[in-house]
Design a protein around this nucleic acid. Structure first.
Lengths: 201, 201
DNA sequence: GAAACTACCTAAAGCCTTTAGGCAAATGGG
DNA sequence: CCCATTTGCCTAAAGGCTTTAGGTAGTTTC
């Protein structure tokens, strides 16, 4: 008489994401996941290569979930409205699912990253910038600024960086978004290339 | 005949920081540190409470080192010059010492954080903002924006987010700093408080 | 010079990872 | 329907990291 639990890489990643929200991504471990399925540890190794593989799968799941939310939030919005919506997707997701969010910050090797939903994220940031008037390469600089600021803010907030100090974090967040909107509307012109006009370094 | 190596919490933290730069902060472990001193693992437990304590000490060391560099960089500078100098302190430190930088992102419990060099960091960011015309509470919002953007950018960059894509990261970094400078010079006015004028939330 | 302390040690328990090899249930071709 | 294969979970075991308990030999102190 043998129990078959029905493990798959997908179910493991999902359960791992839930576990991350409950106990923190650091504590997500092959052993802990096995306990959660009431199964021996070794059994999981038929479905994930190793601990790192598991974490990568969770990260990819998270990136997909966030991208899906972002796509839904951006539909039918433009300009500052879109900017704020996208920003709030990340922040709200992080607040609702801190463990998942931490998983999403897991570094991926380049090939994995290229095949991940991370690509959709930068496409959506670019979509937001359609509401502003930015040509390349400035658009790319702006994409990077937005990504950095969103994730930097949320990470610091999650780490407790802004708690117990006034003004409260929500207010700063609102003002930061106001500021980014203003910045994108009047993006400063690139300065003259220093010396060699036709061959920028 | 007994070998005395001369372990202290400080030396352990320093060696841990070096180890982090060599093999990554994730791999910094009490065992690895013991090997590095050619000493038995248990011996370290007279000097640090546990693994978490060790990591916290490394984080505090890193925050101090970065604050020292920042203080040196800010001396005699103001305005955009100061802004760029401070930003580059973080970015250069992260590039030179990726493991140490990762250690510095280790979350600290509130009391530890309050007693850390983190306080100096926000003071220095405020000092940079003296070159711009920002009254409270907007100054605090701006401090948070700068901290988020600096650390967000550097983290993404370190995670490989901007590699193998053009324009190169150095160029984006320069333009992001141009943009932040422009933003601080024309910081958008706070919108009207929605309903209760004399009692801002 | 004895007492107390310091700095490192041995021993051991507990948990996590990973690989190897096994057995029963499900599957599917003849 | 039956047997062979595959699938899914198991036991066993080795190796690493953490942490505590208890020892021992220099070193300091009075």
């Amino acid at each position: 008489m043998v129990r078959r639990v029905g493990l798959t890489p997908e179910r493991l990643a999902l359960a791992g994401a839930e576990l991350a929200d409950e106990v923190g991504f650091e504590q997500v471990t092959v052993s802990a996941l096995a306990r959660r399925f009431d199964v021996k540890v070794a059994s999981l190794y038929s479905h994930v290569r190793n601990s790192h593989d598991l974490k990568t799968r969770i990260a990819l799941l998270v990136l997909r979930e966030m991208a899906d939310r972002a796509a839904a939030a951006l539909a039918g919005r433009a300009g500052k409205d879109a900017l704020v919506a996208l920003a709030n997707v990340y922040r709200d997701y992080a607040h609702e699912h801190p463990g998942r969010y931490a998983a999403g910050r897991q570094p991926l090797d380049p090939e994995t990253a290229a095949a991940s939903a991370g690509v959709r994220h930068s496409q959506m940031t670019r979509a937001v910038l359609r509401g502003y008037d930015l040509a390349e390469p400035e658009q790319t600089h702006a994409v990077r600024l937005l990504g950095s600021t969103f994730h930097g803010y949320v990470s610091l907030e999650l780490a407790g960086g802004f708690s117990h100090s006034s003004p409260d974090s929500q207010e700063s967040w609102t003002r930061v978004l106001d500021a980014l909107d203003a910045l994108l509307r009047s993006w400063p012109a690139a300065p003259q290339a220093p010396s060699e006009p036709s061959e920028p370094s």
